[in-house]
Design a protein around this nucleic acid. Structure first.
Lengths: 344, 344
DNA sequence: CTGAAAGCGCTTACAG
DNA sequence: CTGAAAGCGCTTACAG
């Protein structure tokens, strides 16, 4: 235990003493500066090793005014889309020797404010944020005023000047809807309408405009409003199945909704792809293992997470670069639930 | 911009000057010390507010030698069990004004070492760790030597002295197996055997001993070894269905495996609960929305996460308290896939 | 209840 | 290529 206590206490001063150089030189060595002569560096490294030295980032952070942590603020970890996004982002950050400070807001704006403030106090080098529903625009103002670099993900925030990573929601759902139309459907419903939520609005628009473009009149009774969760998907499908006139196909807001819908179909002895065609959106890993396997849109959440990290890192390197945008083009994944396997 | 630049720079010295007290007093106020006269405190708070003061945790961390961050090291975020556990843990930590440093190891030991070292440098106050497969015992030694408080979750590590949160794996799978036997099954398989993995060994034992206790001889061909992921579940079920003699019921290592198994059954036009009975384990949120709804074991991951946080917080308060253990007793959740709804 | 002083362990110009 | 000096913004005994 004495040994370990000695180890606990070693600082660059101790290393300096042990290796016969100044602590400036030690610091240079620890930061892999090319300025130090290799033989000196080696000597220092050996001493550090022997002393069981542990770099104290708190000290470095204080001196430099910035840390090696990146804040990651996520609105909904119960949706694996965001989990996969988190996985991609965190891995990428780690590769660049950043470490991730995570906060799950669960769509709570108050919490979002709180964790952002905490990340600021902790001198986060930057923030990746998947904002909550209806995040007020002054949040962006705050972040800017703080001088905090950030990239927003999936839900655009503020003006054109903010860095953003997302996907073409309109195009994706349009593709999904068109696919069903190409399969011969015209009675197509949408589950997951949500008027307070920009992404839902875009997706709903992709759906309804696609219908119109194909000469189909959208049916308001077939645009089901539900919370965006598994139960919402189940309940939404239940609502559709209770209608006197059922649709023959359903476009779901996302894979979570679709999974809930599949559940309800099963509960009623119906099979997706045979009785009713279903399309999801997001392409989460689990979508391939739905029962039946879900036809959906590849939004590549893990890739989006990686891109978000890369964008933030680029922003840190170059604070004055012009605004960066990444808008993923969805790709159709045809599996079983749309009943159009043959087409693919 | 001038305003915000001034704000950036305010320190306790500025507050001290502005409010006419010493910086010691300011520090006391910021930490809500009861020592300061309320009127003084108020004066200080107003000054801090006016100056747009931001507490600098790096400085406090350096001075105190410890931070307000807790490291959370998770082996597998592709399994929602661990995501739900993370959600519970993070929320609880936030309530106690700690913020979570997250690292996903994806079962990579090298990465696990690396992130742990990084968390140490960052002066994490403690660590919650769901260790990777086959984590070497010297990891516990390192953590102890570092003086780093930690609690291990799900996979026990080291000796009796480590704080641990988990569940009774043996009992759970035993209950699931017994339930199937009570339903009249005797041809019961197990998917997710994995000899290198302690938890799998416990669960497999719960399964096979339950069979023996009921006078049933375990069939080696029905103990399927697969990776623990969706594809493993699907492939495992496929393997069973290809057997000349199929089991009538299957106990799955966890809900991930069960979900994959359900997928394969659907692919073959089979229905769980009717054609073959399926039991999962873990009770992740999505299990209720499988198709059909999955019978499983409630392991309450979110609760386990909360408990882990509470345990770590207790450990921080009282470093010398005796080792703490929390072993959750699983509860049977009877839904559709076991075909025993009537019994519940 | 409040203040003066020391120091946490780094990094960064600056000088040589 | 290396060293001496200053300072980042806090907290913590200690004294009064």
């Amino acid at each position: 235990m004495t040994k370990s206590q000695i180890e606990e206490k070693a600082t660059i001063n101790d290393i300096a003493k042990a290796s016969g150089v100044s602590k400036s030189t030690v610091s240079l060595v620890l930061n892999n500066s090319p300025l130090v002569r290799p033989s000196t560096a080696e000597k220092v490294r050996v001493a550090a090793e022997q002393l069981g030295y542990v770099y104290n980032r708190s000290a470095a952070n204080l001196r430099q005014g910035v840390s090696n942590v990146i804040g990651m603020v996520v609105n909904d970890l119960s949706n694996s889309f965001f989990v996969e996004l988190l996985i991609g982002a965190e891995r990428k950050l780690l590769e660049s020797s950043y470490i991730t400070l995570l906060a799950h807001t669960a769509e709570d704006q108050r919490l979002q404010r709180q964790v952002l403030a905490s990340m600021r106090e902790n001198k986060a080098a930057g923030i990746i944020i998947c904002p909550t529903f209806e995040t007020p625009p002054d949040l962006v103002e705050s972040l800017r005023q703080w001088g905090m670099p950030f990239v927003t993900v999936m839900r655009a925030l503020g003006d054109e000047a903010t860095d953003f990573v997302g996907c073409d929601n309109y195009l994706g759902i349009q593709m999904a809807t068109q696919h069903l139309i190409d399969l011969g459907h015209s009675d197509i419903a949408f589950i997951g309408r949500n008027s307070t939520y920009a992404v839902s609005l875009e997706r709903l628009k992709g759906y309804s405009e696609c219908l119109v473009d194909n000469g189909i009149t959208p049916n308001p009774a077939w645009m089901v409003e539900t919370p965006i969760n598994l139960e919402g998907g189940r309940a939404g499908m239940s609502q559709l199945l209770d209608l006197p006139q059922r649709p023959t196909a359903v476009v779901c807001y996302n894979d979570v909704i679709a999974t809930g819908a599949l559940n309800e179909m099963g509960n009623r002895g119906l099979k997706a792809g045979t009785d009713i065609a279903i399309m999801g959106s997001d392409g989460v890993a689990a979508s391939a293992y739905c029962n039946p396997p879900l036809s959906t849109l590849a939004l590549e959440p893990e890739h989006l997470g990686e891109v978000a990290s890369e964008m933030l890192l680029a922003r840190l390197k170059n604070p004055d670069a012009p605004p960066m945008k990444y808008l993923l083009k969805p790709r159709l994944i045809v599996r079983e639930t749309c009943g159009g396997k043959a087409l693919a």
